[in-house]
């Protein structure tokens, strides 16, 4: 059941050339400085998530000694399937979509998802638990399968050329809202200063 749910989005596709041109990620040679920045953003997000969402567990079980010792003792975890399949699959899906939106091809996005997953398992989460072989495999692999499907589904919805289509498209894959680092931002702001009122008019085109 879980697997079929992961697999179904793979079948969606939009054939409209204009839609493909506008919403399919532009693949390019990403410079090393951008790769460092892209990975750094993921890594910072992982720490932010871990320190906030796992705060009570860190307080209860976490220690610097664990953080160091656990790095060298990966194992097969005993989590339930909703964690191991769904939550890790969805997380991997966001890693994959993030790297795709930065201009990586599918294979590169998969490898960087894999590295991101390793970074979390071996250098973040170890304060409270040992790295898990299931997570090391499943996060990037299921994430990529789901991500490929979500990207296609998102493009399909954008292809409907309606407000609800674009909304759904960005809900499924929000990262194209952030332009690639070599693009101009479609962002503008205009200060409004008059005797009666003061303000800022902000617009963002997507």
């Amino acid at each position: 059941m879980a697997g079929w749910l992961l697999l179904c989005p793979l079948l969606a596709w939009s054939e409209d050339e204009d839609v493909l041109k506008r919403y399919v990620p532009r693949v390019r040679e990403v410079p090393a400085s951008e790769k460092t920045l892209n990975f750094g953003i993921v890594y910072a997000s992982q720490w932010t998530y871990y320190l906030t969402a796992q705060h009570s567990i860190i307080k209860k079980q976490g220690s610097f000694e664990n953080w160091h010792r656990n790095m060298f003792s990966p194992h097969f975890d005993k989590d339930s399937f909703d964690y191991n399949i769904f939550k890790h699959g969805v997380t991997g899906n966001y890693y994959y979509l993030w790297f795709r939106s930065r201009g990586y091809d599918r294979v590169e996005a998969f490898w960087w998802s894999f590295l991101s997953s390793l970074a979390f398992e071996f250098t973040v989460e170890t304060a409270t638990e040992r790295p898990s072989y299931q997570d090391i495999y499943q996060t990037p692999v299921y994430g990529t399968v789901l991500g490929v499907g979500m990207e296609k589904l998102s493009i399909f919805f954008h292809g409907q050329e309606s407000w609800w289509g674009h909304t759904l498209g960005y809900v499924l894959n929000p990262f194209p809202l952030i332009p690639q680092w070599d693009e101009k931002y479609n962002f503008s702001y205009t200060p409004i200063l008059s005797k009666e009122q003061k303000g800022l008019l902000v617009s963002y085109e997507f």
Partner: peptide, 9 residues
Amino acid sequence: KGIHLFAGG
């Protein structure tokens, strides 16, 4: 030649 990913059910 290279890395490839298959998925199925």
